[in-house]
């Protein structure tokens, strides 16, 4: 595809997505509120993602510890391992890796589900039965993704630190209490708060991109596959862009 055409397509899609996001804020605050569907989506998006997020968090903490250890041993600062892992996991790796896993699982699932509903006229069926499909399908999923990701990040951080504790004890001996005392001594609220806040933005990005791609899916099964795929790709890129912005903002606010 020629460059000007690609550029035009990019701008057009960005414009449509901005309008879609604007529609979310307009419709999200207007009654009727879909509380029961929101709770259902929180269960699906949050609770059902827990095993995957927990497993990846555990492996992430374990591997990070095992990879860092030789370098720290060579500098003679092995005792700083819990502190380093704690800061890395809480400030950066926990939120970003969890958000990427979340984008892979939830972004693709939302994109495919709504895409399939669009192609098989289920969204039209909802509309003609007098139900606003944007409110019922989009607002609930985006809110659930926004609310659930920070919770998953906290859980993932905790499991990751536990994985790190196991990693430390593979080659050395550190008690549970000492390990976590070292971790929490090194951490402050300035480490937690920006990471926690950016998780909301990551969750929102995953939800809105998944819904946008699914809701605007083209006809046919190929279109559904493309929606699921591009939901993951776009939301993953957005997570990195948001992370970059978050670093700049925390830097300006003096929280780094």
């Amino acid at each position: 595809m020629p460059l000007p055409q690609l550029w035009r397509r990019f701008l057009s899609e960005t414009g449509e997505m901005s309008r879609f996001t604007g529609r979310f804020f307009v419709q999200g605050f207007k009654p009727r509120y879909e509380f029961s569907e929101l709770l259902h989506q929180c269960f699906i998006i949050g609770y059902k993602s827990l095993p995957l997020v927990g497993l990846t968090g555990f492996i992430m903490g374990l591997v990070l510890t095992m990879q860092l250890r030789p370098s720290l041993v060579s500098y003679g600062v092995e005792s700083e391992l819990p502190m380093m892992v704690g800061i890395a996991v809480v400030r950066e790796i926990g939120p970003v890796i969890t958000a990427l896993i979340f984008a892979g699982k939830i972004g693709s699932s939302i994109g495919a589900e709504l895409g399939s509903m669009k192609v098989t006229e289920q969204i039209d069926a909802m509309e003609v039965s007098g139900t606003n499909p944007f409110k019922y399908l989009v607002v609930t999923r985006v809110l659930a993704a926004t609310l659930m990701l920070p919770v998953l990040v906290i859980l993932s951080d905790a499991i990751s630190l536990f994985g790190s504790f196991i990693g430390v004890n593979i080659r050395g001996v550190t008690s549970f209490n000492l390990f976590f005392k070292q971790v929490f001594d090194a951490l402050s609220f300035e480490d937690f708060i920006p990471a926690f806040i950016k998780s909301y933005f990551f969750g929102f990005a995953v939800g809105i991109v998944g819904c946008f791609k699914g809701f605007n899916s083209s006809k046919g099964t190929e279109g559904v596959g493309r929606s699921a795929n591009s939901a993951v790709v776009v939301s993953s890129v957005l997570i990195f862009i948001l992370d970059l912005l978050a670093v700049q903002v925390t830097d300006i606010l003096g929280l780094n």
Binding site: S116, D124, A125
Partner: peptide, 16 residues
């Protein structure tokens, strides 16, 4: 719309 039923060609049953 609640007073007008619509039977879709594809049935459009909610498959979940």
């Amino acid at each position: 719309r609640t007073k007008v039923g619509f039977l879709f060609q594809s049935n459009a049953l909610y498959d979940s």
